[in-house]
């Protein structure tokens, strides 16, 4: 039920895929890109497994996207897979950051890229919103799911509670709701 249909990707394939995800994410939107590639394109995970992994990766310490790479890599190849995915995700971005940083420390400024970035950020935000719409269509079936979705959005985006507090409130409710039961007697 929770398995994506795909064959086992090789280590190289893992690294290249996460490299692609990283490079696509100029201006942000890394979660949306991860979903686009891992769920839609490669079918390595089902929608639900991906989404729950994403939240698990948010709760754990570390950058969410690195965590997700480790998670996906581990699923297929254990330690080696985790390393391959992480190396794939971070190598080129590290080199880009270093090049920009070297330029900055040497010349004390970075060539004006602010305006390009502004446009890309607008698109990255759009990609994130589109991901919410696409996944919402599949996962927000029924009043309880919608209620949970609205609750955590309000607590997180509008009230600006820290992730832990927002999840501390909504998480147990969600688990209680989703816990597999035999026949439930209607109240």
């Amino acid at each position: 039920m929770s398995e994506g249909g795909a064959a086992n990707p090789s280590l190289i394939e893992l690294a290249l895929t996460f490299n692609k995800i990283a490079l696509a994410s100029f201006g942000g939107g890394l979660s949306a890109w991860s979903r686009e590639v891992v769920v839609v394109e490669r079918r390595w995970m089902s929608e639900e497994e991906f989404l729950s992994a994403l939240t698990i990766c948010r709760i754990l310490p570390g950058a969410n996207q690195v965590n997700l790479a480790v998670f996906v890599g581990t699923k297929f190849h254990g330690v080696a897979g985790a390393i391959a995915a992480t190396v794939g995700l971070t190598t080129v971005p590290v080199l880009v950051v270093l090049a920009l940083g070297w330029f900055y420390f040497t010349y004390r400024e970075v060539p004006a890229m602010q305006s390009v970035l502004k446009g890309m950020t607008a698109a990255a935000v759009a990609m994130t919103l589109a991901m919410a719409i696409k996944t919402g269509r599949k996962c927000l079936r029924g009043p309880v799911a919608i209620l949970l979705f609205v609750a955590i959005f309000v607590l997180s985006a509008l009230v600006r509670l820290p992730l832990f507090v927002a999840l501390g409130i909504c998480g147990p409710l969600a688990l209680w709701w989703a816990w597999p039961r035999r026949k439930v007697v209607a109240p």
């Binding site: 929770s2 942000g28 979660s31 949306a32 929608e47 639900e48 497994e49 989404l51 729950s52 994403l54 939240t55 698990i56 948010r58 950020t121 990255a124 935000v125 994130t128 919103l129 991901m131 919410a132 996944t135 919402g136 996962c139 927000l140 799911a145 919608i146 949970l148 979705f149 609205v150 609750a151 955590i152 959005f153 997180s156 985006a157 992730l163 999840l167 909504c170 998480g171 969600a174 688990l175 209680w176 709701w177 989703a178 816990w179 597999p180």
Partner: peptide, 27 residues
């Protein structure tokens, strides 16, 4: 395991909410 099934089903709507929230916050 039942807990994994609960996490997959229960966290999905929460993740959608958090993703939407992160888009709004970044903007």
């Amino acid at each position: 395991a039942p807990w994994r099934q609960a996490v997959e089903k229960g966290f999905a709507p929460l993740t959608v909410g958090l993703v939407l929230a992160s888009g709004v916050i970044v903007a």
